[in-house]
Design a binder for these strands. Structure first.
Lengths: 346, 346
DNA sequence: GAGTTGATTGGAAACGTTCCCAAGATGCGG
DNA sequence: CCGCATCTTGGGAACGTTTCCAATCAACTC
């Protein structure tokens, strides 16, 4: 690989001059610049990133930690980050959770790996990390932004939709459709975003005078497999309900799959509501009605905040993210409400 | 950030000694080493990746280009790469296709971006790249491995399952179940892996004396949306068929979604066969029978090959990848074969 | 006890940039 | 033609490592 010295030699100029032409800073006579450009082309010169990093102390590299790349929740996030970074000539290095250790250790190890790689800044997603962990990590690399979770100690570095409101929206959607008997397939109780949306959901139900003892909740793991077995358990339990709220789309898809096999018509017999509104929701059978979490916006704003921290830029940063439910086919009127003798006055 | 000079000073040793302790190469008196380690800990010293890269000429960084991160086809690939890389202390930088340019330009730009970032090696996936493109790129960075596609000019750097065989397997699976009337939803005709599997599929049908004029093929785009509209078009066309082969799972899922809405029973009225056996296939409604492409193995072996090229290692490299179909619920016996009067002897 | 070997050590050189500084060239006003 | 400002240029220093070389010292061998 040709170096800047070669370029300078071939162009017949000094080192400094060549550097000025390449970086575009400082004044250079047009004729000289032309010679340098010719030399660059001739030698196929490409500046060494390592040398620049060494001198500037910045790698122009942002690390992204994601617990596990399964399903379609994280994919738009990665796309969004890469798009914005590349537009600024920077790049993204990704690390997932790996190994036999528990999720928390995996996350610490993954984030630390990225720090050791000299990332200028970090985007972290994790339900397993504790406040003390993020504090310790933050001491090693202060340029951290967290997505889809709020750590109280670094609140202004955290970006998330309001999942309590998401839960409220879910409840309202179902109540609007005359549902009164509910079941819930929740995510892990250790996941903060899960407890928030459940809190919102249950709170709204209570506000509408639904007896919370009548709503059956099964804790699962955010996976389609989990949704499937939970659906099965729900059916076996003989608990009667007309609407099922799933704490994410993945589980909802698993549920739909099981209901189809069990011969249960959605939404005719049971309505199913998803959460996140990921790509999977768009073309399930039936198409899934879901609470839309604007993760692209959350990501973009979190990233902007991070870039501002890392590079003293002044990108706009929004911190509120409106939630709405997108209506597709899996939620309908509650069965009893559909029978004319029960609801129609005439 | 503390440097190795600080460590040497605090430990009261020379630069070389400190370096020897840190890198673990060369002999150092145990007592001295202990002093150095204490200094490292005290100063929270972390070697600069940039400086090492500059000196060694290796960034320990592998670039991965992926056209677009949608659906679940690419996610296990990224997971696999990251896992293996991290185990070796290396890391992965990912670039996706972005921008308004056509796919080919996007790919060239993305790959070039990774080359400019001084990646030691590249893993590339793209249907849009031409032989001449890969040749040009290869001149800039010879350490390239291509997944899921064979470029004749760099055959030994390409890793892919045999999609012709995949197509054959698909046909056999359907024929075995007595199907004789087919429809196909294909991927883009510009995608080499798509044409290979169609070729295998049609070839096997012909071999089994199926009139190829009777099989209706619709070209689509590998997306669920595409599957949905193709399914709709197929139904509207009044073409009669009992089995539908979809060139990937994503489209199959879209098909399932539309069939459910149209009130068509799968597999009772129509069997649907997917391809790739991605995660989405596992919990669709009904669960999708699909031709399993072992992308994890393809990826792992491609990566090994790349690492061998980059770092003179001797990792084992396999080049054949067995394909099989995994049976779930979306393929059944052809309807007419199920009626007793047609098939049962008594 | 001289010579040989091996372990241990410190420091210079190099990797490829950018930035700073000094110096030469040029142009302009008086 | 001198003084001064501005443009242009070349090269040294620095960034943080590793590698190489020379030097010192202790332990053997004969």
């Amino acid at each position: 690989m040709a170096t800047i010295k070669d370029v300078a030699r071939v162009a017949g100029v000094g080192l400094g001059t060549a550097s000025r032409v390449i970086s575009g800073k400082g004044s250079v006579a047009p004729e000289t610049a032309k010679r340098v450009h010719r030399a660059i082309k001739k030698l196929k010169f490409r500046p060494s990133h390592a040398a620049r990093s060494l001198l500037s102390g910045s790698t122009q590299m942002i690390g992204v930690y994601i617990p596990i790349l399964k399903g379609t929740f994280y994919t738009p996030i990665l796309q969004t980050i890469d798009a914005e970074l590349r537009a600024g000539g920077r790049h993204m290095v990704v690390a997932f959770g790996h190994g036999l250790a528990d999720e928390r250790r995996q996350a610490i190890e993954g984030v630390r790996f990225l720090i050791n790689r000299d990332c200028d800044g970090l985007i972290v997603m994790s339900n397993a990390l504790l406040e003390e962990d993020i504090a310790a990590l933050g001491r090693e690399q202060p340029n951290i932004v967290v997505l889809n979770r709020i750590f109280q100690s670094i609140r202004e570095q955290c970006f998330s939709a309001d999942h309590v409101q998401g839960g409220v929206a879910a409840a309202k959607a179902l109540l609007q459709h005359q549902h009164r008997r509910f079941a819930v397939i929740a995510g892990p109780s250790s996941a903060p975003d899960n407890v928030a949306r459940l809190k919102g959901f249950m709170g709204e139900l209570r506000r509408q005078r639904i007896d919370l003892h009548s709503v059956r909740t099964i804790e699962s793991d955010f996976s389609p497999e989990g949704g499937w077995v939970s659906a099965k358990a729900l059916l076996a339990s003989k608990h009667r309900f007309t609407a099922l709220f799933c704490a994410n789309d993945e589980m909802a898809v698993g549920v739909l799959s099981h209901f189809q096999q069990a011969g249960l018509a959605v939404p005719h017999e049971i309505s199913v509501l998803g959460y996140d509104d990921t790509h999977t929701a768009e073309y399930s059978a039936p198409r899934l009605t879901s609470v839309h979490i604007p993760m692209r916006e959350v990501t973009a704003n979190g990233l902007n905040c991070l870039l501002n921290r890392c590079y003293d830029s002044l990108l706009p940063v929004e911190r509120e993210f409106p939630i709405n439910v997108v209506w597709r086919a899996s939620v309908g009127l509650a069965p009893q409400a559909q029978t004319p003798e029960a609801s129609a006055p005439g």
